[in-house]
């Protein structure tokens, strides 16, 4: 599903160059659940951005679902993010003034689904994350765990094969964190590919395997 070969990413910081990734090779099969661990500055965020099609590598190749991502234009990347990938962030990144319903609907506004299709899908997802009664609430009226469940529902809106989660339980208490991990486990069992960044070994223990990054290289 995800194949990274010799990925490097260099940021130009004025005259200095910062090598965030120095030849990363990762292959993730469809239906796998892996976690990426590493200390801050190890390049895991950069790798997530590249896997998530928010950024492109300086060198190397990245195949997502069999397609080369490296040379894509911004709008092609946007389309890939829209259809292939669902994002779950540490700080949820919900639209603060939109209702739970509208937040879940958002990704479907960018690929021309009809109003009826959108409504049906949002209802489905609200039920799936157990927040059907909260559809009209704004993020600020929901608990952290509830917000993250809305964010997961949003990630699932276009039924993407890959879910990328960046410290999904980082801002949550352990009980909510466990709920979220249970939800992720359910998604994995449905056959989705899950890639999760974390530095909590207990959370990483939910995944099938762990990739450790250090100084822009895979160490384990």
């Amino acid at each position: 599903m995800i194949t990274c070969r010799a990925i490097t990413k260099v940021f130009a910081m004025g005259t200095a160059k910062l090598e965030a990734l120095r030849g990363v090779d990762i292959a993730i099969e469809a239906g796998e659940f892996i976690s990426i661990m590493g200390p801050s500055g190890s390049g895991k965020s950069t790798l997530m951005n590249i896997i998530g099609c928010l950024d492109t590598p300086t060198a190397g190749t990245y195949l997502l679902d069999g397609r080369e991502v490296a040379g894509m234009t911004f709008d092609q990347l946007a389309e890939a993010r829209n259809r292939k990938i669902g994002f779950v962030f540490q700080n949820f990144n919900l639209l603060p003034y939109a209702s739970a319903y509208e937040n879940i609907e958002l990704p479907m506004l960018f690929n021309g689904k009809s109003a009826r299709q959108r409504r049906q899908r949002v209802e489905e997802l609200l039920a799936q994350v157990g927040l059907a009664d909260w559809r009209r609430h704004r993020p600020s009226e929901l608990s952290g765990g509830q917000q993250q469940r809305i964010a997961i529902a949003r990630a699932l809106a276009n039924d993407p094969p890959v879910i990328l989660a960046d410290e999904p339980t980082g801002n949550l208490d352990s009980a909510s964190g466990e709920e979220i991990m249970a939800l992720f486990n359910g998604l994995w069992r449905q056959g989705r590919t899950l890639v999760m960044v974390t530095h909590d070994p207990k959370i990483a223990a939910h995944s099938q395997r762990t990739v450790k990054l250090l100084d822009g290289r895979v160490v384990a």
Partner: peptide, 16 residues
């Protein structure tokens, strides 16, 4: 900016 970032992340194109 944050809202725009979220929209871009979930697949909004620049022209959108």
């Amino acid at each position: 900016t944050r809202e725009i970032g979220v929209k871009l992340a979930v697949g909004a194109k620049r022209r959108t």
